[in-house]
Computed example of a mutant assay.
Amino acid sequence: MDSEAVVTVRLVRSFEHRNFKPVVFHGVNLDQTVQDFMRVVREDISTRAGLPPPFRTFPYDTMKIIHQAHGAKTNELVMSVDEDDKLILQDGQTLRSAGVANETEVAFFRKEDYGLYKANPRTSW
């Protein structure tokens, strides 16, 4: 089984304003924990060239699977609000046990913002 994967992380700053940036990570170890991967992503984006400063310093704290290779894509513009129990990555899980595989796309966001958006899923332009 392959332990390294390409994972796209969608940095979500605002659900309401659809403010997000996808960042691709190569050579992701699927056997690392969710917390370790979040730390790697935070460290990488804090210095990544071409990423606007607000995305680098945002307090991301939660990851959720948006799309897996060869699966159906959601029609939601930022992220689906369905199946949180299955798709939100839990602390202590490895990426593999959480369902992350090669070419998976995950959203990285602030749980509090997501809760507010889920309670009132509007978007503004």
Rank of each mutant, 00 (worst) to 15 (best):
V41Q: 07
P52Y: 06
Q90R: 13
D85C: 06
A98L: 11
F37S: 03
S46W: 08
G92L: 03
S80M: 03
D85T: 08
R96S: 12
L89W: 03
I65Y: 05
P52W: 00
E83V: 00
A69R: 11
A49M: 09
D84S: 09
I88R: 05
K86W: 10
R39A: 11
A49K: 11
I65M: 09
F55D: 07
H67S: 10
H70D: 15
D91G: 12
H70I: 07
T74N: 10
P59N: 12
T74Y: 02
Q68P: 08
R56N: 04
V41G: 08
M38Y: 05
L95K: 07
L30G: 00
K86F: 12
L30Q: 04
D82G: 07
R39V: 10
P53Q: 11
E83N: 14
P59I: 07
D85Y: 08
D85A: 13
P53F: 06
T62W: 00
Y60S: 11
T57Y: 07
V34C: 01
V78A: 05
P53C: 10
D31L: 13
R39Y: 06
F55I: 03
T74D: 12
H70E: 15
S97C: 10
Q68M: 14
T33F: 09
Y60D: 04
M63A: 08
Q35T: 10
D91K: 02
M38G: 11
A69S: 13
S97Q: 15
A72V: 13
D91H: 04
Q68H: 09
E43I: 03
F58R: 02
Q68S: 15
P54A: 11
D85H: 07
A72Q: 12
L77G: 12
A72E: 09
L89R: 00
R42W: 01
Q32P: 04
M38N: 02
G71K: 13
D61T: 02
D36M: 04
D91S: 11
E83P: 00
R42Y: 00
H67T: 05
P53N: 10
I88F: 03
P59H: 12
L77K: 13
N75A: 15
L87P: 00
H67C: 02
V40M: 08
D36L: 03
E83A: 12
Q93S: 14
P54N: 04
T57E: 13
Y60V: 01
A72F: 06
L87Q: 01
V41H: 03
